[in-house]
Amino acid sequence: MSVVLAVAALPCGLVIGVLLGALGGGGSILAVPALVYLLGQSPHEATAGALIVVAVGAVTGLACHARGGRVRWAAGAVFGLLGTAGSFLGTRWSAALDPTALMAAFAGLMLAVAATLLLQGRRKAREQKEAPGRQGRQEAPGRRERQTSGARRYPARIAVTASAVGLLTGFFGVGGGFVVVPALTLVLGLEMPVAVGTSLLVILINSTTALAIRAGTGALDWPLLAGFAACTAVGSYLGNRLSARLPASALTRSFASLIAVLAVGMAATAIPRL
């Protein structure tokens, strides 16, 4: 690994880690374009290497959220294990796809993520405006029971969502937190901070499963990935600490705008070569 690549890996890893720790996902989607366009990896190498970066960042963020009691281990483990079949299929399909087509598809994924994050940001902004009117209200009777029984009431929906997340992880080398967090909130009824923490457990399970499937399929630049992942771990810790001090809606909107710009650039590069 050259000195230039080592220096380039530092800020990339830090930014991805900060976003992963602050948002519980989403930041990992920058790993693949960073590895391809800044660090010279092939698309297939990047989607495999990104899984290592995602897993390391998820471990760091998970440890921080666990200390704060924001992880539901049973729900996260079940959700993650249900996605292993999708992860297997996604990994196989990705390996058989033309590299240029893979990057074009990744650009489409990034646009979808940007739209999703913008919608989430608007919803969070509305909730913040409505929060003063809800102060002093007691938690509705049975709310905790509804949260813990979500998995029993919607088993098919959870299985489909978990499989889709696993498919995305295996195919694109991303954590899928942008799908996991709203799924844990809407389907299982978890509060947003708990959903963010629990999503990191799901991301860890999906990424390690996809990485195990890819083992032995090609050579990886381990020194480069180790440095990248180490910076991601540091950034994830910082992002977790900053999440309580930065406006979540503003952070989400800024990140979504960045993803959209990158997606347009990737599409403009890949589509003409199809």
Rank of each mutant, 00 (worst) to 15 (best):
P193G: 00
L188F: 12
L117G: 04
S254F: 14
P193V: 01
A230E: 02
F171G: 02
A195R: 02
E191Y: 00
A210V: 08
R143L: 12
P43D: 01
L111N: 10
I29N: 07
L39V: 02
V71D: 14
V71Q: 13
R67T: 05
A131C: 14
W73Y: 15
S28H: 10
F171C: 09
T116A: 10
A256E: 05
V202Q: 03
R92Q: 13
A77L: 13
V53W: 00
L186T: 00
A229N: 01
S207I: 00
T269L: 08
Y237W: 06
A151C: 13
G17L: 02
A195D: 05
G17D: 04
S87Q: 08
W222Q: 14
H44E: 04
A256Q: 09
T60H: 03
L20W: 05
F228H: 09
L35Q: 12
V4H: 15
G25E: 03
S87V: 01
A66M: 03
G239W: 00
L82D: 02
S163M: 12
L167W: 13
E139D: 12
R146A: 13
L200G: 12
G61H: 05
G86T: 03
A230Q: 03
G69R: 13
A140I: 14
L258P: 04
G21P: 00
G108D: 13
K129Q: 07
R134N: 13
T208H: 15
G197M: 08
A244V: 10
T47Y: 01
A77E: 05
S243F: 00
V56K: 06
E45C: 02
A75Q: 10
A22C: 06
G40K: 10
G83P: 06
V194W: 03
T252M: 02
Y237I: 05
Q138V: 15
P141C: 15
L258D: 06
A48L: 04
S249R: 05
H44G: 04
T100H: 03
A9N: 08
M192C: 08
C12M: 08
G189V: 02
A9E: 09
A233S: 01
I29R: 13
T47I: 00
G49P: 05
V36K: 09
R72A: 14
L246Y: 07
R144G: 14
K124V: 11
G108Q: 11
G108V: 15
L167N: 03
L168A: 11
L225R: 06
A114W: 05
R157I: 01
P141V: 12
A50W: 11
C12D: 08
G27R: 13
